[in-house]
Computed example of a mutant assay.
Amino acid sequence: MSKNIEGKIVAITGASSGIGAETAKLLASKGAIVAIGARRRQRLDAIVAEIDRAGGRGKAYTVDVVKRVDVANFIEGTVKDFGRIDVLVNNAGVMPVAALSECRIDEWDRMIDVNIRGVLHGIAAALPVFQRQKSGQFVNLSSVLGFKVFAPGGTVYSATKFAIRAISDGLRVEAGDGIRVASIEPGIVDSELKHNTTGAAKDMVMGFYRQAIPAESVARAIAYAIEQPADVDISEIVVRSTGQPL
Rank of each mutant, 00 (worst) to 15 (best):
L171H: 02
K148H: 14
C103Q: 15
Q42M: 05
L100F: 05
E107I: 01
A175T: 05
V89Q: 03
V239R: 02
E76A: 15
E102S: 13
D113L: 13
V129M: 08
F74V: 03
S191D: 06
V114T: 10
E22I: 06
F208N: 10
I51Q: 11
V139K: 03
D45G: 00
L141Y: 00
D169H: 08
A72Y: 01
K202Q: 15
N115I: 08
R117G: 04
L246N: 13
V144F: 02
V87Y: 08
D109N: 15
M204D: 09
K148F: 13
A11G: 15
G56L: 05
L145V: 12
T62N: 01
M111C: 10
V238G: 08
K67P: 00
V129F: 06
A223L: 08
V139A: 02
Q244T: 06
N196Q: 07
F138D: 09
D233M: 10
T13G: 07
I75T: 03
K30M: 11
L88T: 03
D86R: 03
V139S: 03
A28H: 06
I123C: 01
L193T: 03
G31H: 01
Y209T: 02
D203K: 14
V189L: 06
P128D: 13
G18K: 14
G170P: 04
V149G: 01
E76I: 07
V63C: 02
R132W: 01
A221C: 10
A219R: 00
V144W: 01
G146H: 02
L100Q: 04
